[in-house]
Simulated scan of single mutants.
Amino acid sequence: MIVGGIVLAAGRSSRMGGNKLVADYAGKPLVAHAVDAVADALGRAPLVVTGHARAAVEGALAGRCVEFTFAQHFAEGMSRSLAAGIAAVPRDWDAAIICLGDMPLIAPGLIRALAARAAWDAIVLPVRDGRRGHPVAWGRDFFAELTLIDGDIGGKALLAKFGNAITELAWADDTIFVDVDTPATLADLRDRL
């Protein structure tokens, strides 16, 4: 079974006041943390979806083994970035783990655990204290549905629709919820170092 990783890095960072994905965190661009975790966990180049500030994101990942795809309609919301990523998935992938480029604390161990379960389950997501987090593994059977979502909601709409296909993976810490949306959240994250 082949499981690949998609890193969504196309957003406009509107609440950040600048492109958050290229901001420094722990000595490297924010987006590089998610990319490196996927590459380490899966042993293959992640597929990185760009959009807003495409050149800056691609430049921030220079020297890393990644595949890029451009979400032409990224301004219409996360759903269009997700659709672009799914459309670029190689034919031999049986499942894809969808990661958000602004979640730098996601560990390779979590991605490996999701990939291991994706071999048996259709949709796998991490859970802590009853709350669902990211990233989410999706089996190929759901790829077509993922390309049809509209707006800025990502795969959440499908989680409600296909609740019976979901496997929850218990996770021990809050890293599955930590994303960077504002300068304050980035400052808080830096303080955690």
Rank of each mutant, 00 (worst) to 15 (best):
A157Y: 04
A187I: 00
A187F: 01
L189K: 02
L169E: 08
D191F: 00
L186E: 07
R190Q: 13
D173I: 02
L189T: 02
A165Y: 05
D179V: 01
T185K: 13
T167M: 13
D188F: 00
L189E: 04
A170Y: 04
A170N: 13
F162W: 11
A187Q: 11
I176F: 08
V178N: 09
F162H: 15
T185F: 01
T167C: 15
I176Q: 05
F177G: 04
A184H: 04
T182R: 06
K161I: 12
F177P: 04
F162T: 06
V178Q: 14
L169H: 10
F162S: 12
L186T: 08
E168L: 11
V178G: 05
P183F: 08
D191I: 00
T167A: 14
A172Q: 13
R190K: 15
D173Q: 05
A170W: 07
T167H: 14
D191P: 00
G163E: 14
A160C: 05
I176T: 05
G163M: 08
L159K: 03
R190S: 06
A187H: 11
E168R: 02
N164I: 01
L169R: 08
N164A: 15
A157V: 12
D174G: 07
F177I: 02
K161D: 03
A165N: 09
L189H: 01
G163C: 12
N164K: 11
D173C: 04
W171H: 11
